[in-house]
Computed example of a mutant assay.
Amino acid sequence: EGNDSQTASLISAISSLTRSIIDRQHKKEVMGRIESEKKCYVQLLNRRRGLQGDISSFEGGARSSDIRIFEFKNAYRKKIIEWLDVLSTKNVSRNIAVDADFNVIFGREKLSQFSGSTLLRTVLALRAAFFELFISMGCASIEFLIFDTPRQHDIETKDFAAFITRLKKICKDNRAQIVFSTTEYHYNAAEGDIEWKPEFPGFEQPMYLGVIGGAWPE
Rank of each mutant, 00 (worst) to 15 (best):
Q25D: 14
R24P: 02
I146R: 09
E59R: 15
E82M: 08
Y208A: 13
F58H: 08
E132H: 05
K90T: 15
N188A: 04
S136A: 11
C40D: 12
E195Y: 00
W83I: 01
G61R: 02
E35W: 06
G192I: 14
F70T: 09
D154G: 09
A161I: 00
K172D: 06
I34T: 09
S64K: 12
R47F: 14
T7V: 12
D99Y: 08
H186T: 05
Q6L: 14
Q6M: 15
N103Q: 04
V86L: 04
I55H: 05
S57V: 04
K110I: 13
S36K: 06
V104Y: 02
E218W: 06
F203W: 03
I194R: 10
Q25Y: 07
S88N: 15
S12H: 06
S141E: 09
I21K: 07
T118F: 00
L17P: 05
G61F: 02
A128I: 00
D99W: 14
E191A: 10
I142N: 07
V123L: 07
Q25T: 11
A62M: 08
R47G: 14
I164G: 01
Q152N: 08
L84Y: 02
L133M: 05
P206M: 10
S117I: 08
F70K: 10
A125N: 04
R151S: 09
T89Q: 09
L119T: 06
D193W: 08
A161Y: 01
R166Y: 02
N174R: 08
W196G: 12
W196S: 13
G61W: 03
G60T: 04
F200I: 08
K158G: 00
A190E: 11
T7G: 09
T182L: 02
L124R: 05
K172E: 05
T7Q: 15
S64P: 01
E1D: 14
G107A: 07
D193V: 03
G50S: 09
F102R: 06
L126R: 04
C139A: 10
R68S: 13
Q6I: 10
L17G: 10
I170E: 00
E71C: 13
R94D: 11
D154M: 13
R49I: 12
F160P: 01
I21W: 00
L84N: 05
E156A: 14
G53E: 15
S57N: 10
F130R: 07
R33V: 09
E37W: 04
G214A: 11
S115W: 02
F203A: 09
Q152P: 01
R48A: 10
T157M: 12
A215Y: 14
I194V: 11
P206C: 05
A161K: 05
N74I: 11
H186P: 00
D101T: 13
F160K: 03
S115Q: 11
E37D: 05
N188T: 00
W196Y: 14
V86T: 04
I67D: 05
I96P: 10
F58C: 14
C171L: 04
A125M: 10
R77K: 15
S5K: 15
K90Y: 01
P150G: 00
E35L: 11
L51Y: 10
W216Q: 08
V86Y: 00
